[in-house]
Amino acid sequence: MITVEHLTKHYGRVAAVDDISFEVPKGEILGFLGPNGAGKTTTMRILTGFMPPTGGVATVAGYDIFKQSLEARRHIGYLPETVPLYPEMTPRSYLHFVGKIRGMDSNLRRARISDVAEKCKIEDMLDRHIGKLSKGYRQRVGLAQALLGNPDVLILDEPTVGLDPRQIIETRQVIRDLGGEHTVILSTHILPEVSMTCERVVIINRGKVAAIDTPANLQRRMRGTDEVEVEVRGPSEAVRAALESIPDVVSVNERDNGAETCIFEVGCSVGMDVRESIARTIVQRGWGLRELRPTAVSLEEIFVQLVTAEPGT
C-alpha cells in the first residue's frame, strides 16, 4: 500500500531524512518511533504530498506521491502534528468543508460526520467554536478530519498527544480497529503505545532507519539472546557452575535477593528454549527450583539502545 525507497530530504544542509526505505502492506498498522528531530514528521509530510523529497520515491495506493500527487492524496487522511484548525469554525462546519473538498455530497457528508464524531467522541462538541475547545478535543477533531473521507491510508503524527489517559486508550482502540481495512502509519515517542497498537515498528534516528521489525522480534533481536530468570534454593557457586555448563546458555548473572534463595538471569542463544534443561539440571542435583520464567526486554530498552548506538555498530 505504501512503498518508500531511498527517501531523502535536506533542509538546506541539514539532512532531516537520510535514505529511508520501507514498505507497508495493506491493512497494516506501522509505528514510527524516534526521538525528537529524528525525521518522523518530515517523512510523513513527504508521504502526504505536503513537500517533495530531495531524493527517492514514495508511492501510496499505487500512485507516485510526487508525480500523481492529487490521486495519491485522495487516498490519504492526514493528522498533522500541530493539529491545525480554524478557530472561528465549528467542528461540524469544518468537517463539512473538508468533506466538500474531498468531493463528498451532502448526504454522504452528514452520514460520515456523525460516524466519525461518534468514533472520536466529539458529538457534544460539534457545534461549539473550535477556538474554545480544549487541546484534547481539538486533537480529536483533527483525528475526525483525517478519518472523514474513509481513506485507504491514514497518516497520524502523534495522534495521542494531549489526550487524557482514558481517551488515549480509546484512541488506540480506534486506531487498532482501523487496521485490516485501512493502512495506518502513526508516529509516537511513547514506547508502550507502539507495542500496543502497531504490528510493525520503524525506529528512526537522525533521519536513518535504525530498525524495522515487529515489536516482539525487536525485543528478541536486541540482545541477540533470550533471557530466563531462575530462582533456586541452593549453594549459589555450585548452581552457577551447573547453569553455565548447560549447552546454549550464553551468560549467567546472579542477582542477590538477600534470602536463602538466589536469582539468576540466564541468557541463551536466540530461539533456543533452555527452560527444560535448566529445570532438569536443578532438580537432578537436588536443589529447590522456586521459579523459572522467560523475561522479555522492554521496547523502552531497545529504543534507548538503538538510538544511543554509535554509528557503525
Partner: peptide, 9 residues
Amino acid sequence: TLEVLLTQP
C-alpha cells in the same frame, strides 16, 4: 492549516 489544505485532493 495550509498543511491540511495542501494534503487534500
